[in-house]
Design a protein around this nucleic acid. Structure first.
Lengths: 183, 183
DNA sequence: GGACCTATTTATAATTG
DNA sequence: TCAATTATAAATAGGTC
């Protein structure tokens, strides 16, 4: 019994993995782990979750929302008719929409694109006026947008952002046979 | 004792928790779990990660990047001088910036706000012209923005989005004494 | 790269203070 | 509400194919 057993393990030395191959393998495994945990959070608590993971020197992976398996779809399908006074419900719907985009659903129909362009057009005019006075910009009318308008604006821009960035190569994630996979 | 103890064991029945109190408790614990896993992913693999979690009917929690404890800060501090040809590095920096925003760092100085307003101003003029022809909108010059410009634009709008949405009450997360806490 | 194994570490549901 | 505990389930590093 002389020696104490040197049990280095425990608390896996939280530090960057130097070996490139190991780092890559760990990245894949743990990325899946995070997405899986996020999915469980979504399903079990009804929360809305969006995640972007970008490995060094590569394209981003995104996770969002549960529109991936039956149980989840069932929950998402529970879209109540929006009552104008229910701000929370509105908020949840916004996130639902934003996260759909993260899964490459985005503004898919031409009508959607037109609606967005029209809304954007009027907002831009307001914004443009205020930008002239620079310092006043943050006090401008954009702050008076309601949340739905603002999120649409933001959503459309993010959509373009993705196009600019990677020509539509962002990877989304789908759940199939118990595993999260790029699709 | 009549009843069998409902021991859901094994494969924790992935379904929405009906009891509100349990759901809330689980939400807190698992949200922390996801953030912790994400942090490990960041530190171990050097990936950039951004997460938004929105519980039903409440304000969002965000996680982004490791600028929270010494080890992590040390890694983040490793900011190489940007070599103009290194597109990966540029990308990583973009995410660093975007995730800083998620942690409420955002455009903090007046100078930042002015820079952003100036960039936005010129972009808006281009965009506005194209919006006139509606259907052509997605083919407009905004698609020709480089990524840095586009992300700045997007970032600023998200910033405003947050203001519109919750009057600056978004919660960020910080790591302290081994635990993730809202700050 | 991915699928499978397995020894170990880690997360967490339930519980109590 | 939050903190600590603990029995159990799950995640995963490192290996093999």
């Amino acid at each position: 019994m002389s020696t104490t057993r040197i049990k280095v393990s425990k608390s896996v030395h939280l530090a960057k993995i130097e070996n490139q191959n190991n780092r890559q393998v760990t990245f894949s495994k743990r990325r899946n782990g995070v997405f899986k945990k996020a999915n469980e959070l979504v399903v079990m608590t009804g929360a809305e979750v969006g995640i972007i993971v970008c490995p060094q020197g590569s394209k981003p992976y995104s996770f969002g929302h549960p529109n991936v398996n039956e149980t989840i779809n069932k929950y998402v399908g529970e879209e109540r008719t929006p009552s104008p006074s229910d701000i929370d419900d509105k908020y949840v719907q916004m996130f639902r929409k934003a996260n759909s985009r993260a899964l490459n659903t985005r503004l898919s129909s031409l009508q959607d694109q037109l609606d967005f362009a029209l809304k954007l057009k009027s907002k831009l005019k307001q914004m443009n006026k205020n930008v002239e006075s620079q310092q006043e910009w943050f006090k401008g009318p954009i702050e008076k947008m309601n949340y739905t308008e603002a999120s649409m604006l933001n959503e459309g821009l993010e959509d373009l952002l993705l196009k600019v960035k990677n020509n539509g190569t962002e990877r989304g994630y789908g759940y199939k046979n118990g595993k999260w996979k790029a699709e």
